[in-house]
Amino acid sequence: MKTVSFTLNGKPTRVTTDENRLLLWVLRDDLGLTGTKFGCGQASCGSCTVVINSDAVRACATAVGDVEGKTVTTIEGVATDGRLHPLQDAFIKHAAFQCGFCTSGMIMGAYAKLLKDPKTPPAEVLKELEDHLCRCGAHVRIVDAVTTAAAAMKGGAR
């Protein structure tokens, strides 16, 4: 047992648990943030992607102890001040999902890239998404959404 302190979606957060436990299940089961999804449990689908500091990370393969002192952003923390992020706007605009189960991970993967550099070209963002699976086949719309969002962010939208 250990108390792990980190910033979660902008709020200071402490959890007391076995630090080897997986971030995915601490988020979902202990902290009630169910927007981060379980799809494979072996870092090969992208459903559980969250952003740690500014890196996209698979929460199913990350020990909660590893986020000590770090900043964790989940899909629930992407919209801030009551406003959707340009990626969320663009996913809605292009209907870039069907069942929506991959959506959190897709947005978080793209979000990390654009967080690091809002001028990241869409093709680079999509490279990040290559390891994200979508069984519904929403790919072409996700490409459009990422392109729209990247253009908006390049133009200064946040």
Binding site: L33, T34, I75, E76, L84, Q88, F91, I92, F101
Partner: peptide, 11 residues
């Protein structure tokens, strides 16, 4: 749409 892009959609 809104629930799915904000992580609020419940499965």
């Amino acid at each position: 749409a809104l629930e799915k892009v904000t992580g609020k959609a419940k499965y």
